[in-house]
């Protein structure tokens, strides 16, 4: 297919599973005229999954602590390399450290700065989240939507496209039910919501 005639539009989202630490696979989301194309790109191959907009039942987004944990780890590593520099600095003129202190301090400070740089980048990218796309037969994790800000933007775009294809849930479609309350669910009881409160 020629680039000029391609019907797909790239959706925002570049995040990788586990920050891309253990795999070079990445996911891309492309919006077609009537479907969402989820492309798994790994090395030199692309695998495609198509989700027709008329078949998508729900989109879920759940914020996670992964970003904060990574921030704490990066800060810890940065501190780990910075502490010896701070300890060495007042004693850098000691005869036993002469000639060695400055290069070691520069090296350690450089490594510490590198971790701080990653930390800064992670803070700029914002909080993390997990998104899923639900159809009648499966729930696909959208690993490209790993950052809350990007995910919210993309999910709004997707919501608009899906509603263009399906319409919206009208109140009369579900009029027998009151809006669900999360608090109604006893923890650990999956079927607790089988008998929802009925209006009237």
């Amino acid at each position: 297919m020629r680039a000029g005639t391609n019907p797909y539009k790239r959706l925002p989202g570049r995040a990788r599973k586990l920050f891309g630490l253990f795999s070079n696979a990445r996911q891309q989301l492309w919006l077609g005229p009537d479907h969402l194309l989820v492309a798994e790109v790994k090395a030199y191959t692309e695998r495609y999954k198509r989700y027709y907009l008329k078949d998508i039942q729900a989109l879920t987004m759940c914020p996670t602590n992964a970003g904060r944990i990574v921030n704490a780890v990066l800060l810890g590593f940065s501190g780990l390399f910075l502490i010896p520099v701070l300890l060495l600095f007042p004693n850098r003129h000691l005869p036993s450290l002469e000639g060695l202190a400055l290069p070691v301090m520069i090296l350690l400070a450089g490594i510490s700065a590198l971790f701080l740089l990653f930390l800064f980048g992670n803070v700029l990218l914002g909080p993390t989240c997990i998104c899923h796309l639900h159809t009648a037969v499966q729930a696909e994790r959208l690993s490209a939507l790993g950052r809350a800000r990007t995910a919210a933007r993309t999910l709004n775009l997707l919501k608009w496209s899906i509603e263009s294809a399906q319409g919206r849930i009208q109140p009369e479609d579900v009029q027998d039910f009151v809006a669900p309350r999360w608090e109604d669910w006893p923890p650990g009881s999956p079927d607790s919501a089988q008998e929802p409160n009925r209006e009237g």
Binding site: I56, A58, L155, Q166, V174, A179, P180, P186, P196
Partner: peptide, 27 residues
């Protein structure tokens, strides 16, 4: 399991407290 009462819901999971935003569609 959640009864569908509208086109979206935001709430916290009762067991872990994680906030979920769910958008429902007519499908």
């Amino acid at each position: 399991t959640l009864p569908v009462g509208g086109d979206s819901i935001v709430g916290a999971c009762p067991s872990c407290g994680a906030t979920h935003r769910i958008e429902f569609f007519p499908a």
